[in-house]
Design a protein around this nucleic acid. Structure first.
Lengths: 193, 193
DNA sequence: TTCTTTATTGACTCGTCAATCAAGAAAAAC
DNA sequence: GTTTTTCTTGATTGACGAGTCAATAAAGAA
């Protein structure tokens, strides 16, 4: 009983199923059949709507980035003043939703994919540039010329500590946030020149 | 004409071929046949000496870590004083040899592997602990109680900036080293508390 | 010399998976 | 009511890959 307008529903279901499946398997060795089964349809339909495996992966990556961007936006909406906004950006990277196993798996595998897929690399650059520009926007008024270096270090520390915490067997633990916030305060105090 | 004592030679050739092949392909979707061909032997021989694909990967990971550890040791041998030694540890992580495409690919894929393979996870922990303990050894005499946090931040920044620089299309660029050194100086000056 | 150990491979098995296709079924258009 | 469009799948194809095995060959031991 084919309802019309199924395309967006099917695509969304496939994207979610892809991320879940990558999270369950841990790498990109996931089959279109398993993704499709998880999304409640045949593998032929997945091919019909996405054309191929690569495009399914890219759609999943776009979705992951979109979710993260939305979280940052929401956190910024509740923040007041440059310093508060910077702290909000940092905290948004370490919320528990970012540490769901399937989200961690998605990020790690997208890093791998970015080595060989131009599209994946482009998407990752968008994330990096957005983070950098968000940081700069509030760092510049506070520390002027030292903002550029500080933004590089803060962004790098966010990525590095996310990587470490994501790979730790311990599911919880918000020590990473505190470390990045400590760096932020040092930068604001003029620590690194 | 089978010479005796081929095992260590074959194993070393396979490990090197594995890293090269992962670098060429960009991910762990490499076939035992291709690795073996690159190493100049049949795939059956690779299975004979390693037992299976997983063990070949682990051997490659061990080798990558061993090379890195040797570089750090060599850099430390030429360094004098706590401050100099800390700088040497940081620089060792960003030498050009660490940015060979096959080395970058190895690291990224080992991160992915560490999610699901207990052995890979264990090896990664060894790397992390060694780095942390190296940093602590020279930080503690300099800044005492603040060493623990500083070591976390420096190690995190090394990982994060390596990730970023490794994924950048630009092959050269040693800006990352400077950023970590800047953080080091800030920590020594008592910037982050 | 005969036996055992080490080295080596081609051929084969068994499984998996991406992608295609023809065909069916329901809604909408005409 | 017929045609067209959208949705859907089972079955199939074609390819590839991990791991096994029997067989060959040389070196050393007995």
């Amino acid at each position: 009983m084919p309802k019309l307008g199924m395309e967006p529903i099917r695509r969304a279901a496939l994207v979610k199923a892809t991320i879940d499946e990558i999270g369950a398997v841990g790498n990109l060795d996931v089959t279109v059949s398993n993704i499709a089964r998880r999304a409640g349809m045949s593998s032929a339909l997945a091919h019909h709507y996405f054309g191929g495996k690569d495009q399914i992966f890219l759609a999943a990556m776009r979705h992951t980035l979109r979710v993260y961007a939305a979280e940052v936006r929401a956190a910024l909406a509740d923040a007041d003043g440059h310093k508060d906004r910077l702290a909000a950006i940092i905290r948004a990277g370490f919320t528990s939703s970012n540490f769901q196993p399937e989200v961690i798996a998605a990020w790690l595998n997208f890093y791998v994919l970015a080595q060989t897929s131009e599209d994946a690399h482009r998407l990752l650059r968008i994330y990096q540039r957005r983070l950098h520009s968000n940081l700069m926007h509030d760092l510049r008024p506070l520390i002027g010329g030292r903002a550029a270096g500080a933004a590089l270090r803060i962004a790098g520390l966010i990525d590095g500590l996310y990587l470490r915490q994501g790979l730790a067997r311990d599911p919880a633990g918000q020590g990473a946030t505190a470390q990045v916030l400590a760096l932020l305060h040092a930068e604001l105090r003029g620590g690194a020149q």
